[in-house]
Design a protein around this nucleic acid. Structure first.
Lengths: 278, 278
DNA sequence: CAGTGGTCTAGACCACACT
DNA sequence: GTGTGGTCTAGACCACTGC
């Protein structure tokens, strides 16, 4: 049997030994519409990975849901369980799925993330993790406006497209630590208001999942050192000119689609941004 | 056959079907000295991983060397090739080994790292990667002294133990960007001088490998925003009080042994520290 | 060509979780 | 007990590299 197989984009009917018996390449006998989205000549498990990803994207399984067992997926895609396993392995290391021994494989979510705030790297200098308790959030504003050229570029929109801007402060133990500005595309987040944000407890990314069906999958950050301007100084309780960490984040949902631009100013007197290098 | 096996720490002789036939646990019939280093009840491939790690640590294969093929290692450890493969997979994702299809598996090195400077995350704001050319290094000093309590703690030494301190400036296109202080344990780095450092081209971590047999495997960083003091301002060509990124790094060799403490001050006017979140 | 890692399969048994 | 993911094996063939 050849190493590279073709996979139908829908499960086949019981019409033969195997869906992958004859052809050695992708796209020669498969449905035409799949040709540009699933790369040709890719290993079977990569094709499976793409198919699972597409189901996640389409909302076939929602965050927190259990997906079908490896055995079921193997039957559905007409490949061996080991091949499905390798596909799921990669999705699990990408944090898109979570395996739980004895229970099943689940769609990852920001809601019950092991320690919550998966993307927040600011920690107290003392190793006392969360001795400070949970963050207190205060939403300062939530406005509807039109994308500037810069924001549009980063969110893959057009200049002038409707967007939402949110401004908030996070504090730990009554001490303000983070001042953030967020920009969100107006389409996916239609209906988001200051009230919604204020009333919600729990991570904002969890709210995005439940209320708007937008799941953030990964993010990139650009970090600089800056001086506090008058506005930031006042909101963070420092003097003007105080050094702050500027953290500019672009968060992506499935398919590397940018869905949030965020600019945070972090106080790092008693806290630091922690990073692991491998 | 049980899932969890015992492995001898040395390859067995041909004295039976398999070295793993009978016992279901680790440490009950193995050499006594291995009991606290290889965890009992761990999966076979984890034990294999530990054994390979030990060989790397002992210098059986040096950075850049090719290690034995999966098949050879499987014979040596008396397990299947698939089990060795899984062990190597994990070591490869940890960046300790590098697989090259058709050629073999190699011990990773900082010397010919794909883009060099594996641990340096400072990039120009313009996407022009290395349009700036390579970094120019200037060693300012290299002193022998005794560890302070703080440095000793971070390097797992005792206060007063001999250490080396190095101070240097990195510049891109004649513009100073990084001021770094390094502290290294005196023992492993005996013989390191300002001349050695100055004459060397290429990454410092590559020099550590070739000259001192110390390979840095991972690192953690604590990042803060600070104001330039007079000394830093002068060396980096900024005014006093200018905001700088303070990057405190502890680098580890095999077995999580800390081997370097480094404190860098980064200018982030035209550059930024880039991070990927998953 | 031979040797290496890469993919795929099939089947076995274990550890864990829920009922 | 049943069903899930986790480990291990054995064997096949493919793709890449270098002689």
């Amino acid at each position: 049997m050849p190493t590279h197989h073709a996979l139908p984009s829908e499960p086949s009917h019981q019409d033969g030994r195997s869906a992958v018996e004859g052809s050695a390449q992708m796209g020669t006998d498969g449905p035409a519409q799949a040709s540009h989205i699933a790369p040709a000549f890719s290993p079977l498990y990569q094709q499976i990975k793409t198919l699972i990803l597409r189901s996640l994207q389409a909302g076939e399984w929602k965050p927190g849901d259990m997906i079908p067992s490896e055995f079921d997926l193997a039957a559905r895609f007409r490949v061996s369980q080991g091949t499905v396993r390798k596909a799921i392995d990669e999705l699990a290391t990408d944090n898109l799925l979570v395996r739980r021994q004895g229970k099943g494989t689940y769609v990852a979510t920001h809601a019950e993330q092991h320690t919550q705030y998966r993307f927040l790297r600011l920690l107290p200098d003392t190793g006392d993790l969360d001795s400070q308790g949970p963050a207190e959030r205060r939403i300062i504003e939530c406005r509807r406006l039109r994308a500037s050229a810069e924001v549009a570029r980063q969110l893959a929109l057009r200049t002038g497209d409707p967007i939402l801007q949110v401004k908030r402060v996070l504090a730990f133990a009554d001490s303000p630590a983070i001042l953030e500005d967020l920009w969100l595309p107006g389409g996916p987040f239609k209906g988001l208001t200051l009230e919604t944000l204020s009333e919600d407890k729990g991570p904002m990314y969890a709210l995005f999942e439940t209320q708007f069906g937008v799941r953030m999958v990964r993010a990139t950050e650009k970090i600089k050192a800056v001086s506090a301007d008058a506005d930031a100084a006042q909101l963070l309780g420092v003097s003007e000119g105080h050094p702050l960490l500027s953290v500019e984040r672009v968060a992506y949902t499935y398919n590397d689609a940018p869905m949030e631009l965020r600019r945070g100013l972090y106080r790092t007197d008693a806290r630091h941004y922690r990073n692991e290098l491998n």
